[in-house]
Write a protein that binds this DNA or RNA. Structure first.
Length: 677
DNA sequence: TTAGGGTTAG
């Protein structure tokens, strides 16, 4: 064009650019931009930003990113384009790119608008980064009352969400209450956020209260909110309430989805209603809808747990015949089930059943390579040294599993060293003094790092099975550990950490569980340290493992203290944690404490299940407290929980105890009679 | 924006 001496106006360029982008010819569009650069034609910053937004909308994120950098360097980026770009990266789960854009934008001295702040607070919140979310909230407030940037309903919704995600549900509820008083009208999204937060942390009373309030305020609950509530109710073992909610859903015309039925089926299995769960599954199949690969996976898992491997394998064939993909998770479940059953040729057996042999083949090939590379692995030295050096104290353990300076220690008054924020003139217009207090705490804790994650560690991520990645490591760890083959698991663990593959908390938890089972407490300590160094978040399972370990070491007192600490932060105590600690206390002869914990568990809204009752009946029987054991047996039957095979052994023991007592009683009577004669 | 994996009892 230049050679021809024709001057192309910037308007022409714009028209051509527009046309190319609209028709998806992005390479051509970029060529046009290059040409423009060469001939020295400049678009207005506004035009560049529109091009950028168009690229984002067409999901050309790579191109958009490079163009964004150019714009930023030329000081021409505006808040609309940066917001669009950030939203796109968050939705695509591109955390690294998100952070880069976020940092670049600020580095160059640009300022976010309210929406920009909200997008960032929300995104960092989604990734469990409470620190950054609070930091941004501080910034927003510090702009002062005169600024156009100020926290709005979206800001608070996002903050409540992140508080829930890191297990600070008490704080989230406090902010939520203030918010309602502040003149903000909670919207559909607010209710959804707080209800889901409560459900995820098993605060079902709070969840239901807000669910009712939501309806009272004219918001119609949808399938997703109901699914969350259903799931929560089943997880706290409130079977009756869950069934009632499902009925209500049907009556109110809330559409039940496949997801709903999956929650129902799994919930019925978990609440000791295997027959009902299986019947529902069969009925749904007959109807030909509401069944997907996850449904099959749920039923297969539960069949494996009940040692019904053959039926599980039949279902694998059935699901394939219906066109559902058997995923890595299901295959792992089956392999573990087969190994536990002692079927050493299990992989071959599984091959026969899984039509899509590619995945099983991959798994087998991977294992062969792995095992070949691990020949000559040595046994781990037995190690019964205490898990916590220096006899272990609470602060030492807490510093490892919960390195969160946000939690004031017992000696530190809440936000005391920050001063009272309520009367700070700058904050007069703020709608949540409580939120301000939380946020101010991070100002004096710059190195704060959140390590507790409410979302559980993932075994299977999205990468697939082609490479030596953490998914395969987790899968194989599970299998080796299920076989009780700790030395192979250890070797595998060492090997992949040497290779620089980052474990996830699932991996660490699996390893620690096995170490605790074998009494290798020193190793547990080592793994915990490793987690800390890698800044890998602990989750509820990590806590449960620590409590189990402490119980085995005879330190039920410490275990108890950890639970108190967690309780203070607002809960997220699950039934496994309560059961584990009940068992530890019982075995340690602390029966009164165990009884108190049982009451605490119930008052916190978690119903006891078959495991809870088996533990209580057992520890009381073993302590010769026959009456109490009976009391719990009766309570269990009254709650509609049927005894299982574990209960049977315990009851046999209880019978003998009763016999013993009768004998003693009779002897005493006989002695008395003898004496009186 | 919700569901399945592992962690609890003998």
């Amino acid at each position: 064009m230049k050679e021809d001496g024709i001057v192309v106006s910037s308007m022409t360029f714009k028209v051509i650019l527009d046309a190319f982008i609209r028709s998806g010819k992005f390479d051509w569009a970029l060529e046009v931009l290059d040409d423009m650069e060469q001939v020295g034609t400049k678009l207005s910053p506004y035009m560049y930003n529109s091009v950028l937004v168009a690229l984002i909308r067409k999901n050309q994120l790579g191109l958009a990113l490079s163009m964004f950098y150019k714009l930023v360097e030329a000081s021409g980026a505006d808040s609309i384009c940066v917001n669009e770009l950030l939203v796109a990266f968050r939705k695509a789960g591109m955390r690294l790119e998100f952070k880069r854009v976020f940092e670049k934008f600020r580095e160059k001295g640009f300022e976010f608008d309210t929406r920009g702040y909200n997008i960032c607070i929300h995104a960092f919140g989604c990734w469990g980064d409470l620190h950054t979310s609070l930091m941004l909230y501080n910034e927003m407030r510090d702009r002062g009352p005169g600024s156009a940037v100020k926290p709005d309903l979206c800001t608070y919704n996002s903050l409540i969400r992140v508080l829930c995600a890191v297990g600070k549900v008490n704080d989230a509820l406090a902010v939520w209450e203030e918010l309602k008083e502040s003149g903000h009208e909670p919207d559909d999204f607010s209710y959804r956020t707080i209800i889901q937060g409560c459900c995820k942390s098993y605060r079902m009373d709070d969840a239901i209260r807000n669910f009712n309030e939501m309806q009272y305020n004219g918001f119609r609950p949808d399938t997703v909110v109901c699914n969350s509530l259903l799931d929560g109710l089943f997880k706290v073992r409130k079977l009756k309430e869950a069934c009632e909610l499902f009925e209500k859903m049907v009556n109110d015309g809330v559409r039940a989805s496949c997801w709903t039925y999956n929650v129902l089926i799994d919930g019925l299995f978990k609440n000791g209603r295997a027959v009902a769960a299986y019947t529902l599954f069969c009925d749904l199949k007959k109807k030909g809808q509401y069944v997907d690969a996850i449904t099959y996976s749920i039923v297969i898992l539960n069949l494996c747990r009940e040692d019904q491997i053959d039926r599980a394998l039949e279902l694998v064939e059935e699901m394939e015949a219906r066109g559902f993909v058997v995923d890595l998770l299901t295959i792992t479940t089956l392999l573990i089930g087969l190994y536990k059953q002692g079927s050493w040729n299990s992989s071959e057996r599984l091959m026969k059943h899984v039509r899509n042999g590619n995945m099983v083949l991959n798994v087998l090939r991977w294992r062969a390579e792995m095992e070949a590379s691990m020949r000559g692995s040595q046994d781990k030295r037995k190690d019964f040294t205490p898990m916590f050096p220096s006899k272990g104290n609470l602060s030492e353990i807490m510093s490892l599993i919960n390195r969160s300076p946000l939690d004031p220690g017992p000696d530190r008054e809440f936000a005391s060293d920050v001063g009272e924020t309520k009367h700070d003139e700058k904050n007069l217009w703020s709608t949540s003094p409580y939120m301000d207090q939380l946020a101010n705490q991070i100002k004096c804790n710059n190195h704060f790092h959140q390590t507790f994650s409410v979302s559980r560690g993932q075994r299977v991520q999205e990468k697939g099975v082609e490479s030596f990645d953490i998914d395969m490591v987790n899968t194989y760890l599970s299998i080796f550990l299920a076989k009780g083959n700790l030395s192979v698991a250890c070797k595998l663990f060492e090997k992949f950490t040497d290779m620089g593959i980052d474990p996830v908390n699932y991996t660490y938890n699996s390893m620690m569980t096995s170490f605790v089972k074998k009494g290798y407490f020193n190793e547990v300590w080592g793994v915990l340290h490793m987690m800390g160094e890698k800044l890998c978040p602990t989750d509820i399972a990590t806590y449960n493992i620590i409590i189990q370990g402490l119980g085995k070491m005879g330190r039920a007192d410490l275990a108890s203290a950890i639970l108190d600490q967690l309780n203070k932060q607002g809960g997220y105590l699950d039934i496994v944690m309560y059961n584990t600690l009940l068992n530890a206390l019982g075995k340690d002869g602390r029966l009164e404490e165990a009884n108190r914990l049982f009451e605490q568990m119930r008052s916190s809204g978690i119903n006891p299940d078959i495991v809870t009752f088996n533990i209580l009946i057992q520890v009381h029987s073993k302590a010769g407290r026959v009456k109490e054991a009976y009391k719990f047996l009766k309570m269990m039957l009254d709650a509609g929980i049927s005894p299982n095979y574990v209960t049977d052994t315990t009851l046999d023991f209880l019978d003998k105890e009763i016999e013993k007592l009768r004998y003693e009683k009779a002897s005493i009577k006989l002695n008395n009679i003898d004496g009186s004669i």
